[in-house]
Amino acid sequence: MAESPSALSEAFQLLISADPALTEIVLLSLQVSLTATLIAFALGAPLGALIAVSRFPGRGAVIAVLNALMGLPPVVVGLTVYILVSNAGALGPLRLIYTPTAMVIAQVLLVAPLIAALSRLTIEDMHEEYDELFRTLRLTRFAAIGTLLWDARFSLATVALAGFGRAIAEVGAVLIVGGNIAHVTRVMTTAIALETSKGELSMALGLGIILIAISVAVNAAVGVARASGRRMAAI
């Protein structure tokens, strides 16, 4: 691997010079995955809280399914969304295939179950502690969920970061529904796959370094969330 050292130095060159092609890809990645995480959180956290405070027949099965969906393979999610949004699919008329919107939809489906399952776990523990208080206050279920979501805010921030980590790093779903089209749907992971197969290692390495940096930053943010939560005696 004689060219590896030079590929690596070229990669750093791309990073330092803020290469426009690389920057575009990074920004699109962040845009798609942040949007998907926000939507998935808005759906998943309240759903998790609702399951946490509710007792109904089949609850155990719902939780088991939710937990299983946490590990949903990205390519399967991609395939499902592809079938939905492709021209022959139910959402075909919206012409979403090979657009960032389709990628967001795929990542929402990928991440929302993870966020819902982890939120359910966190909030169920807290609800056990708060239940008698809630009953003496005669809170409605809606008010109880609101209280729990706010009081679990630091743990839920960690959950959201876990969701973002999964979204930004996955390749299968965005590749299938986005198609890795330059300047349109090319994100970091799909670009790395493509550039590597073309032998353009410097671009792939440069993007890989950024991905790792993002993952380090996410972990640091988790640390910050946990530390603030402890300082506020809120975890």
Binding site: E129, Y130, E132, L133, L137, R138, L139, A143, T147, W150, D151, A152, M232, A233, A234, I235
Partner: peptide
């Protein structure tokens, strides 16, 4: 209760929450 359950928020916010309830 013997061991009171306080919400994970400020002293004032605990009272505000109860007043809302």
């Amino acid at each position: 209760f013997q061991r009171p359950t306080l919400l994970r928020r400020s002293v004032l916010a605990n009272i505000r929450h109860a007043l809302a309830a």
